[in-house]
């Protein structure tokens, strides 16, 4: 549920005189497009007028882009191959359960990939 003031704005935007520190609390909602259009316009206006808040919002947006880029991790082909082999091995040791799942009969007989690497 959205928090709103009696005048319909988000509490952080209820009065023009609110401090920048309070406005910072809703900058994530602004970036994610989760503010009402009225609050969005009000905050947009403030960001255009206040150099510090405008710059802060731009920095936060850039760090989110950077975070997304840092998260792009490629699964190494060797890891993919080892996972397929090990799962195939383990699935062979399983018997189907009556409700559609399966049960591992002898999981301890198969070494973990790390144990194998250490051999």
């Amino acid at each position: 549920m959205k928090r709103t003031s009696p005048r319909g704005h988000h509490p952080a935007l209820a009065h023009a005189a609110r401090s920048c520190a309070e406005l910072v609390t809703i900058i994530s909602d602004y970036i994610d497009g989760e503010l009402s259009s009225r609050d969005w316009r009000a905050l947009e206006g403030h960001l255009a007028d206040c150099v510090c808040c405008g710059r802060f919002a731009a920095d936060l947006r850039r760090s989110i882009v950077l975070c997304r880029a840092a998260g792009a991790t490629t699964l190494p082909a060797a890891v993919r191959r080892r996972a397929r082999t090990r799962i195939a091995e383990l699935l062979q040791t399983m018997t189907p359960e009556p409700h559609g799942g399966s049960r591992t009969v002898a999981p301890r007989a198969v070494r973990s990939p790390r144990a194998r690497r250490q051999r």
């Binding site: 998260g71 399966s102 990939p113 790390r114």
Partner: peptide, 30 residues
């Protein structure tokens, strides 16, 4: 794999975690 690397934070364990999770997925996906 991404989850294991970024959230678990143990790169050396990521492969094991990934395999455990995938195995569980295969067992219960139905």
């Amino acid at each position: 794999y991404r989850f294991s690397v970024h959230v678990c934070g143990h790169v050396d364990e990521a492969e094991d975690v990934m395999q455990e999770a995938l195995l569980k997925t295969f067992r219960h996906v139905r």
